[in-house]
Design a protein around this nucleic acid. Structure first.
Lengths: 225, 225
DNA sequence: CTATAATGTGACCTGCTGGTCATGTGACCA
DNA sequence: TGGTCACATGACCAGCAGGTCACATTATAG
């Protein structure tokens, strides 16, 4: 976490620094990010940087924490519309709200996800963060099984992997396509984009919903023709 | 491509160099790979390296070409078992054969896919290669639509994206889990692993197979509760 | 005003990078 | 034998990295 000095700074200066950092991470990832460039782009001296942060990973972890905080608040504001949603409806709501959030903070999300997806896989301390979000999905799936929405014999870890993957794929897709638009938020909210998301989720959902017995039958048919 | 000098080298030396390069790329990716380390680990002088290759990207492109070549031969050897496969059966065969191939060259595949998935997204010259494989999938989907195996109103690009994603997910999963095993090939061929792959593919296949009218109905039900 | 604490600064350090090049070595040939 | 050619070598270069530190500036308090 940043040193106290950083938080004593005038907000304008602080923002300039974190914006420079976001741009740097979005462009170069964590490993290849250059503190020299961050410093140059935020108009502060090299020494000052090290008076605010211990190193560039410190900045990144701060951005990560900030993102989590903002996301939490965003989700709290927009509580689920309906009360009696089933698991997949809830998942769909989560994805869509997540996409709205992403389009509200596209640069930050881009920077974080670039680092998390790429370099994150190879660093242990990031694995823990990922594990946390997977835990959430795991309990969600278990709940869905209890509710009879997902076949009890479905492999929970496999289902989690599938849901996590889809979540990431959709997020990346929206981010990538969205960055080409002039008004991301508007584009995300458009009927066409929403339908694309629906279709993507539908493929996943329908496959998971299918009962195991159906799978066994279909499996038999297809693998021993 | 490597300079002629490289191909005049005794095979033993050549292998030592490319093995060092594979290890380096698998560990550090392309950007962070160090020619100095490659040189040190392959026991050649710095100058020699630049007599064989123009730079590290040259080595990488050589590995990439080698992989494609090997993969092509591997697939040619093991032609599809049945003649009258439908598209999804063919896709499943492709995935499974691909996984067998991966487990035959795990280090090389790991190195390549690490670079392609991560840094590849940000470099134009890699985008072309990816585009080529997507073209293959696109014609496959179109064929499936013609054969009546996939609903004609399915968005082809979306389906391609889904199939590509699944292919990558399975590949990553197998690679990651497989590297923990002492005998990857045996593990990949085991009934349990094969069933996992089947289940993963099943989720995708079932979602795609579903007719558009079913989707529209289900879509209606779920989004306007 | 002075004293003290907090913040700002950029020249400077070491270490590594990708890349060069003059020199060395040894096999082959006239 | 002497000459030529392909290959080998590692000292060397400029550039940039992350990080430090003695000193300058500014704010605060007495």
């Amino acid at each position: 976490m940043p040193k106290p000095t950083f938080f004593n700074l005038p907000e304008e200066k602080r923002e300039k620094i974190i914006n420079a950092a976001i741009d740097e991470f979005a462009e170069y990832g964590l490993e290849n990010a250059s503190t020299n460039r961050i410093v140059a782009n935020s108009g502060i001296a090299k020494g000052s940087f090290y008076q605010y942060f211990t190193d560039k990973q410190d900045v990144f972890l701060y951005l990560l924490a900030a993102l989590e905080q903002e996301k939490l608040e965003y989700f709290k504001e927009k509580h689920p519309p309906a009360r009696n949603m089933d698991t997949f409806q809830y998942f769909r709501w989560m994805i869509k709200t997540g996409m709205e959030f992403n389009s509200a903070y596209p640069r930050l999300v881009q920077a974080i996800s670039r680092v998390m997806f790429n370099e994150g896989l190879y660093y242990q301390n990031f694995a823990n963060i990922r594990e946390r979000s997977m835990q959430g999905l795991r309990t969600m799936i278990r709940q869905a099984i209890q509710n009879g929405e997902v076949d009890p014999s479905v492999d929970v870890d496999l289902a989690v992997m599938i849901m996590e993957t889809w979540s990431n794929v959709i997020s990346n897709y929206i981010l990538q396509e969205g960055m080409k638009q002039k008004d991301i938020m508007k584009w995300v909210r458009s009927a066409k984009t929403q339908e694309t998301i629906d279709k993507l989720l539908y493929v996943m959902e329908y496959g998971l919903r299918k009962t195991e017995s159906d799978f066994a039958k279909s499996f038999q048919e297809r693998t021993t023709p």
